[in-house]
Write a protein that binds this DNA or RNA. Sequence first.
DNA 1: CAGTGGTCTAGACCACTAT
DNA 2: TAGTGGTCTAGACCACTGT
Lengths: 237, 237
Amino acid sequence: MDSKYFKIYNDITVKIEKKEITPNTKLPSENEMMTLYDVSRDTVRKALNMLESNGFIQKIKGKGSFVLDINRFDFPVSGLTSFKELAEKLGQKSNTHVKELELISPDDYLMRHLKLSPEDEVWKVIRVREIGNRKIILDKDYFNKKYVPELTKEICEDSIYDYIENELNLSISFAKKEITVQQATSEDKVLLDLKNYDMIVVVKTHVYLEDASLFQYTESRHRPDKFRFVDFARRQH
Amino acid sequence: MDSKYFKIYNDITVKIEKKEITPNTKLPSENEMMTLYDVSRDTVRKALNMLESNGFIQKIKGKGSFVLDINRFDFPVSGLTSFKELAEKLGQKSNTHVKELELISPDDYLMRHLKLSPEDEVWKVIRVREIGNRKIILDKDYFNKKYVPELTKEICEDSIYDYIENELNLSISFAKKEITVQQATSEDKVLLDLKNYDMIVVVKTHVYLEDASLFQYTESRHRPDKFRFVDFARRQH
DNA sequence: CAGTGGTCTAGACCACTAT
DNA sequence: TAGTGGTCTAGACCACTGT
């Protein structure tokens, strides 16, 4: 969006990421920002609260807002970023192989996870992700055909999220993730470069649109030594 | 705290958790809530935004606020909850064995992680967590003595967080977590009931106080089959 | 004491959804 | 057209921090 508070938020995150503002620096006070950006105090505060809840700054009563020491590499790549976005952010060379792409009728497992009726159809996409010439991640995606009527190999090799957000104009809103560790299946061993590992990290994700409808279920299977998840959490007061 | 918006937030979360409000129900509109709670619209909105970012509701422009379908078991137990809080929430019988409790001078590794000078002293606590008679988690906690001057076996067996927040009156603000999977060490194998697993899930956490000072570093080592992490994420717009 | 962030209010205009 | 949530403003009072 191009709301005023988002512009302020963006302005400051960019400056922090470019290291124009360094950690532990005190940001201008809310009053100063009002005149700096020519907005009301509430608008400044909205931007600052976003910065705080995303781990960029810490506000301290009576003192001011301070930039936190977050080095790029530690930063929560978690949340809701696609594989392509992630790879680009980390500057890694990556490759995607589409192993399967078909329209199927859901079995019980899928019906439960995507909350479908038996008449619904589902796009099943199986992809192997290669980073640094090692096949490391096996992604199994399932999309409700109601929301994603068409998929091609080309789209799946590039970025399905790009397609969904920019071509279909669907707005992804939130997701629930679950991380567990399981025994590797024979499928994992065939499709991935697992070395001697017999376990696999499984990230199950349910993705929802803006109107809270569930449209995607994904199982992402990672070689254990290459898996890393970073999280930033604030305590509820 | 007992701000007005927090009371509203709390009122609604309690009703959702008690299932007095069921999923997909529409909450009263912001205007109705103004009169219901006798507050201004902004105060209502603050409460609703908290509910939304914590995954309780979804606001839809022009329609209203709707309760999300979040069953208790799937709910993000992640974030910043202590082991004791977590065990209580899940209604599990648990046990804590204190294996080590001593005041040490930090080595390089600790100095880096807790950002200490060589003169600083650190409380080192090693605990084994037992759930259902299985030793499943190995917790290694390090507290900067500057903030936590004294620790006893009794405190460590109960809840250090209780002690820190209620006795020392320190206010825990935020944390950074990293989840990886590593080879189990011989220490893991001795202290935990690892069965035949030779890998271990490692959760490294840096915990910060309200003034953004780093006061705790923790390594929590989990048996892979018993590890489960749940996350709720909203997409940045 | 002045300056800071935290809470709260009352009112305005907008874009979206339903009918 | 009426109702909904989203943005923005201007002003008030409070609690906390530094001097």
